[in-house]
């Protein structure tokens, strides 16, 4: 009993406080069980308003489960989820009005045109009849589907369907978009278009939660991320913060003029360095120290007269972070 009361107090404080306006989604100690096993266990994170939030984890990590709970399609076993201060269990109506949800796998209705499909959702979201035509036109323009408005929905390509589904989530002008692996079925070109569209939507003031099991897909799109594995949160925060954190390791690739012995010894002595590979004249290692201390690495190498030709320093390499984190290297 105690634990709930406490959780509730803090929630109430959150809803009433100044912070509420800045937080689009707040997940607190969320758990979901199927049978005996946890799909999501004690998950907590927050999504600030106006962010593109990457929700990242390998297959089966519990992303879809969490996003379905956010979309009021599943009930949590325990914990609390607030969307703009509204509880997804007790205030489903209010939550549904505020979110646009795009499932990871979805179908479209046979036998209707693109325009009719959007009309259906405009009706389902109770848009005033007089405004529907204008809204549908706007949404079609935004998603670049204007030319296809009379095409049958079932004849669209996967990328088009995906964009149509996104158009459908925009019809009622939600402030929060929940997109479950929207890029997984798309080709490279469609992915780039999707990315441009999402940035445009962010400019329009929407908060976007986007999930993926591939990190590179999101690393230059997202402004903050949460990484989960086996239903538990590994790390979450703004991208900038994650880069600065000590475990926000950089992958460094040093090319030598020619292979040289002693490189390994020189690098192993430095605590912030974790060697990944030495192949011929290419040395790859992870650097976890402060940026200001990196010269020490170079000094150790040059002291031993290692012929360094180039240093590639990938400072936004979230993939690396992701791989390390999900391996359980870092607590």
């Amino acid at each position: 009993m105690d634990s709930t009361t406490r959780a509730e107090e803090s929630t109430a404080a959150l809803a009433a406080g100044e912070g509420a306006a800045e937080i689009a989604v707040s997940v607190r100690s969320l758990s979901k069980t199927y049978g005996d096993g946890y799909a999501v266990h004690d998950l907590s994170f927050e999504v600030p308003r106006g962010e593109i939030f990457g929700f990242i984890g390998p297959n089966g990590a519990g992303k879809t489960t969490t996003l379905r709970i956010l979309a009021t399609l599943l009930e949590p076993t325990a914990g609390e989820v607030l969307v703009e201060g509204r509880c997804v269990v007790n205030e489903t109506e209010e939550v549904r009005r505020r979110i646009g949800y795009m499932p990871d796998r979805f179908g479209v209705y046979d036998g209707v045109t693109v325009e009719e499909y959007l009309e259906f959702f405009a009706g389902a979201y109770r848009l005033p009849r007089g405004r529907r035509a204008a809204v549908i036109k706007d949404v079609l323009d935004l998603t670049d589907l204007g030319a296809l408005r009379d095409r049958m929905v079932s004849s669209l390509s996967m990328g088009m369907k995906q964009r149509l589904c996104l158009a459908k989530t925009l019809v009622h002008d939600p402030s929060l978009l929940i997109l479950d692996e929207p890029a997984s079925a798309l080709d490279a070109r469609a992915r780039i278009e999707m990315r441009v569209l999402l940035k445009e939507l962010r400019r329009m003031g929407k908060t976007i939660i986007i999930s993926s099991h591939i990190l590179t897909e999101l690393s230059d799109l997202c402004t903050s991320v949460a990484i989960i594995e086996k239903g538990e949160l590994v790390v979450s925060g703004s991208m900038d913060l994650l880069q600065e954190r000590k475990w926000g390791t950089d992958r460094v690739k040093i090319t030598l003029h020619e292979p040289r012995p002693g490189v390994e010894e020189a690098l192993v002595e430095i605590p912030a360095v974790e060697l990944v590979s030495i192949e011929e004249n290419v040395v790859v290692f992870d650097y976890a120290g402060a940026p200001g201390e990196f010269y020490k690495v170079l000094k150790a190498l040059t002291d031993r007269e290692v012929p360094v030709v180039s240093v590639e320093h990938d400072s936004r390499n979230l993939e690396n972070l992701f791989l390390r984190l999900t391996k359980g290297d870092v607590q």
Partner: peptide, 13 residues
């Protein structure tokens, strides 16, 4: 079967 039910249930109907 057609995976359309979630879109329907997530709406404000």
């Amino acid at each position: 079967a057609g995976l359309t039910i979630d879109l329907l249930l997530a709406s404000t109907l």
